[in-house]
Write a protein that binds this DNA or RNA. Structure first.
Lengths: 139, 139
DNA sequence: CCGAGGGTTAGACTTAGTCTAAGAACGATG
DNA sequence: CATCGTTCTTAGACTAAGTCTAACCCTCGG
């Protein structure tokens, strides 16, 4: 379990005191390439760790967000979702499945943001919607 | 009340049968330059019209969205919000107040969308966050 | 060993939204 | 004008996501 030690170090570097629950949550949510909701995190973590309460999952996710380990996304109706990739990037939402796909920052160019009158923009992203082309099924 | 007749016509053009409740809701939500939540719509409309139920407000908003009179936005935590401006544009969220500001489509240029591999993008927008510079208080 | 400060817990609570079953209004038809 | 079927509206029960609270339990320093 060097991975666990790794994660423990990461937490501590971010000023977060480790605990069994926080480690279990971190192991899942910091490593996934999905964009899980709090709900999902609770399910997944509860399966590993004997008992974790809902309050702890919410507390921990908020803590991770506050400490910059995680980013909170609200892309579609009623779904708050967590993204371990904290560096800037864009998001594509598949309308069929609801799946969220990361789009690398450099894949798009956005011009004109600094020129917006009256707005001090601290961050932005492009949110795209559509269908994922199925690339399977034809070699 | 030529405005009311106007709105009635707009509803009918979109295949929506008019009713007192729908007119009252439309009069507010199609004319505002804010981005009200369902909640707010209920409050505002209830103040004018003797009695409107929550179910009707939700039904009507969904109907308007379906018929293309309104667009649903989910920009920040737990807030589904309605925008009568249905043509493409971007959005700025003021972090201090939560206010949503429309950013005209032409104010920004986004390049690279058609080239995204594996994604059929049907729509997109830039979502910006930051502070609104206060332009008042100095003439 | 003790106490203080975090961390965790179950469960009550809140809020946004949906569902349901019943009633009211509408509009075509005789 | 009466009737009937369809559409619209309603109150209130229900659900789902998230927050709050008060008690409990670790752990670490003294």
């Amino acid at each position: 379990m060097t991975q666990s030690a790794d994660i423990r170090r990461r937490l501590e570097e971010h000023g977060i005191q480790a605990s069994a629950q926080r480690l279990a949550i971190a192991e899942y949510v910091l490593a996934t390439d999905q964009h899980p909701a709090a709900d999902t995190v609770l399910e997944v973590v509860a399966a590993r760790l004997p008992v974790v309460s809902r309050a702890t999952v919410y507390n921990t996710l908020h803590l991770f967000v506050e400490k910059g380990l995680l980013r909170e996304l609200v892309l579609s109706e009623g779904r708050v979702v967590y993204d371990p990739k904290v560096e800037p990037h864009h998001h594509f939402v598949d309308e069929a499945s609801g799946a969220i796909v990361d789009v690398p920052w450099d894949a798009l160019r956005v011009e004109g943001v600094p020129e917006l009158p009256g707005l001090d923009v601290s961050e932005f992203q492009v949110v795209l919607r559509g269908r994922r082309r199925s690339r399977r099924r034809e070699g």
